[in-house]
Design a binder for these strands. Sequence first.
DNA 1: CGGCATCCATTTTGATACTG
DNA 2: CAGTATCAAAATGGATGCCG
Lengths: 242, 242
Amino acid sequence: MAISGVKSRRRSYDQYCAVARGLDVIGERWTLLIVRDLLLGPKRYKDLLEGLPGIGTNLLADRLHEMERLGLVERTVLPPPAGSTVYQLTAAGEGLEPALFAIGRWGARFLVGGPKKTDVLVPRAYFVAIRAAFRSELAQGMREAYEFRIGKLGVFEVRVEDGRCVTAERQASNPDAVFSMDVETLNALLFQVISPAQAISKRRVAVEGDATALDRFVRVFGLRSHGQLAALSQARPAAKKR
Amino acid sequence: MAISGVKSRRRSYDQYCAVARGLDVIGERWTLLIVRDLLLGPKRYKDLLEGLPGIGTNLLADRLHEMERLGLVERTVLPPPAGSTVYQLTAAGEGLEPALFAIGRWGARFLVGGPKKTDVLVPRAYFVAIRAAFRSELAQGMREAYEFRIGKLGVFEVRVEDGRCVTAERQASNPDAVFSMDVETLNALLFQVISPAQAISKRRVAVEGDATALDRFVRVFGLRSHGQLAALSQARPAAKKR
DNA sequence: CGGCATCCATTTTGATACTG
DNA sequence: CAGTATCAAAATGGATGCCG
């Protein structure tokens, strides 16, 4: 219990600056990744823990407490029969989506060349990323829902209505198609290193419902290919080494 | 040099995710504030150190080395007679501006109520913030340049051409007006708790050149007032669900 | 079990002193 | 001026324990 009595003074930059003050709140390790995962809906402690390999249980508890104190998340107990306690974003927490997207758009250049050997592929990252990649202009008049089952890692709903999209970690209601695949296949589809037709014919994806929906999904939500990413990151003045 | 031989392994989230990978690069303490200050132009080591109270000289050196290695900044030696070494952002580093702005827009809600007693007011923060606050639609056809001298803390150029603006830490070339004031007055003007006319008549601002330029500056660059900030942080769209 | 709290080894940081 | 070197305090991360 630390030195007891002494409330843990939060580390601050002590600058009257919106960026510095924002970083005082979200700048600690893991905080923004917790927000990322909660953007897909309420989560239990254990679900967050499993989705954030390396965080350690004490740190997750600390972060959630601080985020609750600062008004980013709410801790609620689901009504029976569930009865489990879940954490969900407040409006202030959801307000971090633009900042998260901006960081992701910038950070995407470091994904060039594929995963490091030490990298894990976390499905939640993709279902948040595709929100930012959503091509609204290609989805006019579209109105569909998909369910994705990514191994044992999670079930996700993707819903498109006119120019808007919603993604969440839950079963889809009335989906036009249900897709089952592993996370590597999801990655390959989104980066378009494999076509939907190939993925299905090679049995990397199992489909219930409208199989053609996978084409439309990739067209509207596909991320930049690695090739395009590479071109993007060359566009900068050749980082020298010393 | 640590245990020698062993190059310091960088701490990473080890997730194949654009946000996580971005945070691997910019998520450490101080890094984004260094970027913020460099957005106003190249800086010497000492200038950065003075503008970031609390950073400690070894940390600044570490950060700059890592940022150089990762291609965010370049270390260059100015030609004689200056001869000083300066750090400046690469294109990749400048690419962080949108992320920085997004964090700032979110973090601004924590500025409500004015500075904490422990806060310092750093002029550089304002001259970056006003870029994000710039109201392009009010500046159509406008073409002016100002120089701001903020106590002994710095000299800044603000330039508006048509719908675009530039801010930098340097003397202005051919300014329409030169304003001298302390940082508290700058804060009061931008948050519009004092009018330009008041500031001038109370001799909190000294003007050379066109005194009416200060009105236009505030109109086009003024930040949301504390009252508006408060309203903003209440005015969430009440994203109810379920 | 799920949801943490405690303990402890490592890293990271911040402050200060020192050097080319 | 532009950093290194050194060292104490704080943050992190892993393992384990506890409790309803």
